[in-house]
Every structure is written in structure tokens, then in C-alpha cells.
Amino acid sequence: MNCDEFAELVTAYLDDALDDSSRPLFLDHMARCSGCTGYYGQFTTTITVLGELPAPGLSPKTRSHLLTAFREASSEKPE
């Protein structure tokens, strides 16, 4: 396995989706190649930071509009 092949398989490895023949080759390459070890570290750091990005929510106006719509739809339904 060369470095390009290694780089292509990082997501498959992290998803535990490598087949039995590729997995040892992947791990073996990482153990011997400092460049790919660094790449792997940056890759997983990227994933961690992605999971920490703050997400803005709905505006109060939209939220209250939707709650009103829900209330009105419910009151129209027969009991």
C-alpha cells in the first residue's frame, strides 16, 4: 500500500468498513509512514472540530409562527 492508497482509505477505516485483506495493510502502512500518521491525525482532528461547530437555531419569529400553525391545525381536527 502506498501513501495515496492509504489516504483514500481513511474514512473506510474509521467506519470499520475495510475488508480483511486491506485492514492489516492500512495499519502496517501507518506504523511505518510518519507522513501518513500525520495525515491521519489531521483527518481525525478535522472530524472532531466539525462536531464542535456551534449551530444557530430558528429565529424566535419562525419558531412562534410554527407553534401557532401547530395550534391552529390541531384545533381544526375533530376530537
Binding site: 437555531g57 430558528l58 419558531r63 410554527l66 407553534l67 401547530f70 390541531s74 384545533s75 381536527k77
Partner: peptide, 21 residues
Amino acid sequence: RNGDEEVFALLLDEWSRGMLR
């Protein structure tokens, strides 16, 4: 289905951020 507003508000607050993204 029963018009429980608290349930709707819970969903709204729980899922809307991800939906916006």
C-alpha cells in the same frame, strides 16, 4: 396527532438546528 404543543416544541428545538444546517 393529539395536538400536544409541548411535544411539537420539543421536536422543533431538538431538530431545527440540524435541519437548518
